[in-house]
Design a protein around this nucleic acid. Structure first.
Lengths: 175, 175, 175, 175
DNA sequence: AATGAATGAGAGTTCATTCAT
DNA sequence: TATGAATGAACTCTCATTCAT
């Protein structure tokens, strides 16, 4: 699953072959099918892996006492991944974009669920801060993240994330 | 080219076959190769088509006297496309995400160029308004657009664009 | 189609690969799919080919003036094919047996239709002879043909068809 | 062995996987290979199972005093299995047809042996009745059985077996 | 310019068989 | 004996690309 998540992030779901994942996981191609009956199941596994990583991250952030600090730390984490984002984009965002075109397996909804998870966590931080329209604020923050990831990736310029990250942190402080 | 742009937007570059485009353009498969030597050239043509549409749009907006009004009108245009975005995402943004994974043909830079075009036009509006850091503001605005398009698409909810669009317009008015 | 019919008869539908048929038809594997979208369609084509051959045969027999002579000639034709039957069985019968187990493609009914065609032609001969229960007689004659084909094939003994063929001809004369 | 016999009868030897048989026998896939070294051995085991069932049947029929009555009882038994025959054909006949195309393992002769067993038993009944050419009569009776099984199966009509069964019983009485 | 067929390289998937435990 | 995983060779099917006409 880890191999699938990584290779799919780097090559994209469509361009990733089962052989690619098998090689990354150091197993035989045929053996992959012992655990995942179809390629769709493998992609779903990659998504679950991303969910797991997201939950680990938010779990760690939850240990911070101040919700505002949690959000700022989240943004700092994003910026810290800027080189990866410049090269391959946001794992969840790019996967969501691809899976949207892969309607047959019913995977198109799954990526949305992971993003929803992030949105909900962010909104709950804003809620804890007693800010009005926490859901709208979450949309703005997560949207800004997805947007700057995409621009960073498309223009291959990690500095975009630094600049926008700073802006987001300043913005969080004004709320 | 128009057929390529539309089908590629709806199905994604990877999942679109030459046969799909040929059918949409109502020509024979073999004949496509008389005009485009490779599939990459077809995808490039789709990008050019998007560039053309962007230039048409900014050309029209340029007729408005006030740069701020131009930007607000641009946002309104985005929101007007919300149903398309919910179904298929931003044509340029999703294509950029896909082409990033398609390095061989050298197409990965091309999508960035189209986005750069939009960024430049937006920045020049901010510059005309004598605002500080027009490039940064452009990054923020276009980033917000890409972000809300992706969320709208991933969650299949056009209302996200309405809400974020309103926020962007209000933001433009505060500058 | 002719290649498909022959190879499928000799190797069976399951053991015949598209490559086998392509080789027999002297075309490229991929090209087969230009004409037949799936393997099931190829097998169906083989069935159509058998139908065509059956219609050619009955068409020729119809030129004989006496219905009884037509039937006797049919039996003689079967016996004439005894070596082929000993090696590969009756093309339609063996295919019907295999397709019965291949329910997914909906091919299981198709083989029955070809057999029904033969039954109907035979019955109409008996009807022309003003014999009672022509359908039952057809069932007996065609059943005897399928039975002796199967035995001949299973025991690899063409003589079985000679012996049973003689008996059937004698039987036809007693009616 | 019983599981193999049943599943192979229903799905055909080619379409039956070791996993299918293992599931039917409620054992692990790998464990099947502790008892049967190859798939061919499993199919052979299915054949042996059919032989066993045939011997049980003839053993019971042998308890009847009159050979003619034994044969009539045999036919009645066949007709009693008409629904199974309509769905899956005669176990031995369909297997013989399939195995004929599976030459490598040398199984093609094995199915013939089972049929030969039946032929011999039937012939010995005719011999006991002092009828001329008992082997020829056996061929006719068993051939009729295989033929009506195939037709019943191909046309999915159990009534065929009722009708032909009646005819065979009447025929036995005329001898 | 257009047509329809041909080519050939891969991709996903299945499955008999093996093997360590 | 039993288990569960691993292996690897097919096989079906897809598709970008080429080509003769």
């Amino acid at each position: 699953m880890a191999a699938a998540a990584q290779v799919v992030h780097q090559q994209g779901a469509e361009r990733t072959t089962i052989a690619d994942i098998a090689r990354a996981a150091d197993v035989q191609v045929g053996n992959v099918y012992y655990y995942f009956k179809t390629k769709d199941e493998l992609v779903a596994a990659a998504l679950i892996e991303h969910t797991r990583q997201l939950e680990t991250l938010t779990g760690e952030l939850d240990r911070l006492p101040d919700p505002r600090e949690r959000l700022k730390s989240l943004v700092r984490g994003w910026v810290g991944q800027r080189d990866l984002a410049a090269r391959y984009g946001c794992p969840t965002g790019t996967l969501a974009t691809e899976l949207d075109k892969r309607a047959e397996g019913g995977l198109d909804k799954e990526a949305g669920k992971v993003i929803r998870l992030l949105l909900d966590w962010v909104a709950s931080q804003f809620r804890e801060l007693d800010l009005p329209d926490p859901d709208g604020l979450a949309l703005t923050l997560v949207g800004a993240y997805q947007g700057m990831s995409l621009l960073t990736n498309a223009l291959r310029d990690p500095q975009i994330m630094v600049k926008e990250g700073d802006r987001l942190i300043a913005w969080l402080d004004t709320l």
